[in-house]
Design a protein around this nucleic acid. Structure first.
Lengths: 341, 341
DNA sequence: CTGAAAGCGCTTACAG
DNA sequence: CTGAAAGCGCTTACAG
């Protein structure tokens, strides 16, 4: 039976208005009064009713985090980082997983955030204009990670530059037949083409830079899973003229590729090089060379952007530069090493 | 500007009480009236104010999920599974990460869930009696995963049997010098000794079953990270009489062990066998033999238990049996294979 | 089956 | 600096 403002007012010998003001730190209250009220509240173990103050103010102090798939490391990491920023700022975080097209449609069809949160942090889902408008119509401030929309704050990664850097690394090592393992979600996937095709474009850029003519047969587009990476790698190995290296659009795909290579008895990086994308928590343990794109940083920045928006700041977009992390999965192709001293 | 009950009442030509009852499906309303009200609501795009109904009813239809560390696969997976059950049942999920002792203490010191949620799903944190009492004093129904407390619903795994089965598998293969990589969190860690020492006890059981005398030097207790597993494995390899196999208390530790073994030029399972614990999403891709303990299942069952409690059911505890998943990281020790045909 | 009225527990102009 | 009062938008006995 939580006590109410009234009980505190009685005990402190003041009105409820004074209690309300004193406890929230509103200025214009005698220090002595404030002290008295605080003591009374303390003694009664009083804590203001959330529902009541939300009803009275219209603000929920809650942020909804909307994510395609909670169990992917990338998303969990972003949410964790964002959550720390949000809760330190006094916001509750409401979790919404939109793992299927049905859930996604249902979510946007009804005003599901109305009165539930003040803002939404949307990860990866490439919102349609209608979806974004729906959120705003529900009074939500919105911040995006992994996509950009006019009028909304967002943080994204220079993925084209990232794909280019990853590929250039292999080219510098002497590779010329380089495959690309890209992410291509099934139609209707809530992931909506994330991470973006930008990484593929960067791969092509690097080839062009080096005067290597692109081979469409080396470009794979699969679901973003270890197994899919595995399967694509297997296919690549059966080509008439197989590649000597691969750049994967995610570390998960790279893990799959590594599994296939190992299964085929090939040495990495001796016989084959692979570079991933993410700097996944486990990339280090398998010695994977990969692109780090500041995953936690993305969450942190997005949360800060959302809070700024809630505080009235105009929308802003933040762009992160990915960095190559060289580990043990890349080396010159065997052909070259054979002739070296 | 969301419309109110009043506006719907006006449009439908009834009282607000009738609107409230009609829209919530309360029995005792003429079907024709209900229909009329629903149409009016539809036309106005009306949706009841959450704060108002929460204030009026005292129920939030929200569940707090309390977790030590969001970015660990195990937790993310449990939350995802629990979240699906909860949201299908009409509950919002509020995320609370207690990643440091400070956050944990602050969380339990103040009535942080009061009026925020109807129940709490607590993962892995081994709640003290006071912490559990604090939650209940805040009117929370509680369900636990990974620990057991009198009066609270919970789902746990038969970890002792699991540790035993993992170890027995190696013994059956012919191993006798078997190390154990256990989880021992730093004092003050919010993880509070999870997964439980039960796994270690099971390991000892299996040795005893086989008449193998235990060697305390083979029992390692480290933080639950890939790097710690790596380091412990390195130490084990420098022993005067090194083990030929290891059972790790988590797949993360096992991944670390694998990395060290590979780095040392040892073949797995040729030169060394390892079995993990979790059946981590990536265990398959590295061919890790491991104990599956139904991670998603734990989340699902705990969510169902919590909902049942919220519906007035008595506390219940569910016990899951872990299963050995044999993959490619275990084989007879070399000594034995050398003499086989 | 329906309505008038009180109540849930805050916050916030408005006066003083 | 403080208080009386209205208002936030629902739900729920209580009557009829």
């Amino acid at each position: 039976m939580p006590s109410s403002v009234q009980s505190v007012a009685d005990r402190a010998g003041v009105s409820v208005s004074t209690v309300s003001r004193a406890l929230r730190g509103v200025p214009g209250i005698a220090e002595s009064t404030r002290k008295r009220v605080q003591e009374a509240a303390e003694e009664l173990g009083y804590v203001a009713s959330l529902s009541a103050s939300r009803l009275a103010t219209g603000r929920t102090h809650t942020v909804a985090v909307v994510v395609p798939l909670l169990s992917k490391w990338f998303f969990a990491e972003v949410i964790a980082a964002a959550g720390r920023v949000l809760s330190r700022a006094g916001y509750d975080v409401l979790l919404t997983e939109l793992s299927t097209p049905e859930l996604r449609n249902a979510f946007f069809a009804a005003p599901r955030l109305q009165g539930r949160s003040d803002g939404a942090l949307v990860l990866a889902l490439q919102l349609t204009a209608e979806e974004l408008a729906a959120l705003e119509a529900q009074g939500q401030a919105v911040a995006l990670v992994g996509s950009e929309r006019a009028g909304a704050s967002s943080v994204c990664v220079e993925d084209r530059a990232g794909g280019r850097a990853a590929t250039r690394h292999l080219i510098n090592l002497g590779h010329e037949r380089i495959a690309f393992l890209g992410i291509q979600e099934a139609p209707g996937s809530t992931l909506g083409g994330v991470p973006p095709a930008e990484r593929l474009l960067g791969y092509r850029d690097a080839l062009a830079d080096a005067g290597i003519s692109p081979d469409p047969g080396l470009e794979f587009g699969v679901g973003n899973t270890v197994d899919a990476g595995s399967a694509a790698m297997a296919t690549a190995l059966t080509m008439a003229e197989p590649p000597t290296a691969v750049v994967a659009a995610s570390d998960e795909l790279a893990f799959g590729a590594l599994a296939t290579l190992r299964g085929a008895g090939l040495q990495v990086p001796g016989d084959f090089s692979v570079v991933g994308y993410d700097n996944h928590e486990l990339a280090g343990s398998v010695g994977l060379t990969t692109m780090d794109h500041g995953v936690a940083e993305q969450g942190r920045l997005a949360a800060e952007a959302l809070i700024a928006t809630l505080d009235g700041a105009p929308a802003a977009v933040e762009r992160l530069q990915p960095n190559l992390v060289v580990r043990g999965s890349t080396a010159p192709p065997r052909r070259l090493r054979a002739v070296s001293p």
